[in-house]
């Protein structure tokens, strides 16, 4: 589903290279964890997948379902089924969460040539998805992410993910700022989305999240490259021994 080939990318503004020859393949139905120390380029990778224009791809390619997405803008990628759950979801004052959800869902439907949702259908879908994530409908009347607690923001991200039904989910440090109960709810939400047709990329610093969202593969990112790949045992090894051994081996 996702194939990253020898990707090089830099910050558009000052030319700092962040991704330096990254290779990664994630198949349908697979849950891949990307781990790495601070500054290894994890978040940058998620932004590049989503098409943030602050980064320039200088070499290599990103194939999604076999086709390059580099020429697609952010909204087109989203409509094609790529979803990014942000580490720090942004606040948008004055835009009610419900309104935002409706616009997003309908824009994606429009892009797929589908009819817009009727209001009752929309509300029914939101109510169901929100219930599963323990989200109070009152919260959704508030402006998007404005004044949400850390946990509320993350749950709102997962809510959007479940409503938009993407094919490729990228979760950027979704566990940060969550207490254990919230982590459980969010993980259950993600696990509910696991399906043979969907790939999930979990970017995380810690093993903790991977106890709840058990990955099929684990990849270690360091200085903009995948330096080691393995199964979930690799994550445990990292937890116990830290990154230094693997970094040494790779060097």
């Amino acid at each position: 589903m996702l194939e990253i080939r020898n990707l090089h990318a830099r910050i558009a503004e000052d030319g700092t290279e962040i991704i330096r020859g990254l290779n990664l393949t994630v198949g349908k139905g697979e849950v891949a964890a990307i781990m790495g120390p601070n500054g290894s380029g994890k978040s940058t990778l998620s932004y590049i997948l989503a098409g943030r224009e602050d980064y320039e791809v200088t070499e290599g390619d990103i194939l999604y379902n076999g086709e390059s997405i580099l020429e697609m803008d952010t909204a087109e990628r989203a409509a094609a089924g790529i979803f990014l759950a942000f580490q720090y979801p942004v606040e948008i004052p004055g835009v009610a969460t419900m309104q935002f959800l409706k616009v997003a869902m309908n824009e994606q439907r429009k892009a797929h040539g589908e009819e817009e949702l009727t209001t009752p259908d929309f509300i029914r879908q939101v109510r169901e998805a929100a219930g599963a994530l323990n989200i109070d409908m009152d919260m959704l009347k508030r402006p998007l992410n404005v004044g949400f607690s850390g946990g509320e923001k993350k749950r709102a991200e997962i809510l959007q993910m479940s409503l938009l039904q993407p094919n490729l989910c990228v979760l950027d440090e979704t566990d940060s700022g969550l207490d254990i109960d919230a982590l459980k709810i969010v993980s259950d939400g993600v696990n509910a989305l696991r399906s043979p047709d969907r790939a999930i990329v979990v970017i995380t610093h810690y093993q903790r999240l991977l106890e709840h969202i058990v990955p099929d593969t684990v990849h270690v990112l360091y200085k903009g490259q995948v330096i080691k790949s393995g199964d979930k045992a690799l994550a445990l090894e990292l937890e116990n021994n830290g990154y230094s051994n693997i970094i040494k081996d790779a060097a």
């Binding site: 909204a75 997003a104 824009e107 994606q108 959007q160 938009l164």
Partner: peptide
Amino acid sequence: DQLFYCMQRGIPE
């Protein structure tokens, strides 16, 4: 950031 967030959800610019 706001613009990118919206577009990531599939809303054209």
